[in-house]
Simulated scan of single mutants.
Amino acid sequence: MSQTGSYIQIDNVSRRYGSVRALDSVSVDIAKEEFIAILGPSGSGKSTLLRLIAGLDRPTEGRIHFEGEDVTNLPPHKRGIGMVFQEFLLFPHRTVRENLAFPLRMRKEPQSVIDERLEWVAGVLSLTTLLDRYPSQLSGGQQQRVALGRGLVARPTLLLLDEPLANLDRELRQEMEIEIRRYQKQLGIPFIYVTHNQEEALSMSDRIAVINNGRLEALGERQAIYDHPQTPFVARFVGKSSKFQGVVGQDARTVRLARHDYEFTLPAGMTFRAGDAVDIYVKNERFDIALKSEGGAGIPCSVVDVVLRGPFLEYILETDRGDSLIAVKPKRNPLPVQERVLISWKPSECHIFKAGG
């Protein structure tokens, strides 16, 4: 069922290509001023979903509604959408002004409308001083803003973005993440952002839809998706985690690791049966590290290397069983290479699923 007040409804949408099911019964409701990220690995079906929303393809099953209107069979140019792609697709022989005006000229808009829209989008994206330059005279970030402008110049009611930052370097990508989120809040229209990059999804979106093998694995607010993954795939894919295997004790309240002499209490509210085999995921930043010389419970490890990550240190660890782990901690009281440590975690800081899930 669609949520009250939802702007876009994707209802049980599937897409098959011959015997291949690219999407399988996906349902997502999107609010009018929401920024939602469609997150998944390559080949998961996320771009297929974007194409269906855009009208570039049609679902095999299911319906798509905009503001209550069934647009499932409506062509792209009648849906009121804008699109921004991974490739900027700017015309190299045309100025920024001409690139921005192109969608409006294709729609045969009068010059007065073109002038008004150009002034508006150039103001929103800080392009006014660049209008007479050619793409070759622009930086990567400026080219990206022009590509955004071309998607927005017709004042769409929805903007679709397909991995638009993939070709930018890390620093510029992070700057554009902030800018794109600011533009979305300023414009007050829904943005649907497809990416395989979890950092982008977490930094920009209000909610995240996680797609895997054509199915919707999870849908929720970004913090909830990160802190409370509901499936093993989400636990593995969103955030960097280490995986352990264990067995639930006879009291059904504790878990003992299969390869390490370490036992911990099940998180509150989580129930398994005695003897159940389980998989445990711990995000790298949620490990506790103690010196082995101080004693206590934990997995014995040696520090193999230390990597500086700005204000954090990434400890490359090796357990006494030869397994590799990574623990991320603030950059204070750094541990030296070869230091002997004990790794543990609070019960509330891990995610546990029945083995093989």
Rank of each mutant, 00 (worst) to 15 (best):
K346D: 07
A290H: 10
G55E: 11
A31G: 12
N12R: 14
L52F: 09
N212V: 08
R51K: 15
N99V: 08
A327G: 12
F91Q: 09
R107A: 15
V238Q: 00
L160H: 04
P232D: 02
F312H: 14
V247C: 09
S242R: 01
R256T: 15
G298I: 11
R273K: 06
G5Q: 08
F91D: 04
L23Q: 09
V303T: 12
A101D: 10
I81S: 10
K354P: 10
G356Y: 05
V124I: 13
A224M: 04
A22C: 13
D261W: 01
K243P: 01
E87N: 13
G295Y: 02
G149V: 02
I53K: 04
K78L: 15
P59Q: 07
S126I: 00
R215K: 14
P232Q: 06
N73A: 15
S302K: 13
Q198V: 01
I299H: 06
F85D: 05
T48F: 07
R15A: 05
A258H: 10
L127E: 01
E119P: 00
T4Y: 06
D251I: 03
M1K: 10
Q338F: 10
N12Q: 15
R21G: 08
H93M: 04
E109G: 01
V247A: 08
I189K: 13
F191G: 08
I343C: 08
E98Q: 14
L23E: 05
G269T: 04
E221R: 14
L172V: 12
S242H: 01
K331T: 08
Q142D: 01
L152E: 02
D251H: 06
V146I: 10
A31P: 01
K108D: 05
L118C: 04
F35Y: 06
V337W: 08
H65D: 04
E171T: 13
P92N: 11
R309V: 10
P76N: 09
G123S: 04
Y193E: 00
D24W: 06
G123R: 03
F244D: 02
R259T: 03
R340G: 10
A224N: 11
Y262L: 08
K329H: 09
T95K: 04
E109V: 07
G62S: 11
R150E: 08
T231N: 01
D305G: 13
Q186W: 04
I178H: 10
L118Q: 03
D320W: 03
L50V: 14
Y183N: 01
G239T: 06
Q142M: 01
D320I: 15
H351V: 12
D279Q: 11
D206N: 13
A37I: 02
Q186P: 05
I53P: 09
D29R: 08
G55R: 12
P156C: 11
L165D: 05
Y315H: 10
S136C: 08
S47V: 13
V153E: 00
H93I: 12
G151T: 13
G295H: 04
P110H: 03
R133P: 00
V20E: 12
T72C: 12
L266Y: 04
R309K: 12
I316E: 14
F88T: 11
T4R: 11
R309P: 02
D206K: 06
L89F: 07
P110F: 03
L325M: 07
G275I: 06
I53Q: 05
F88G: 07
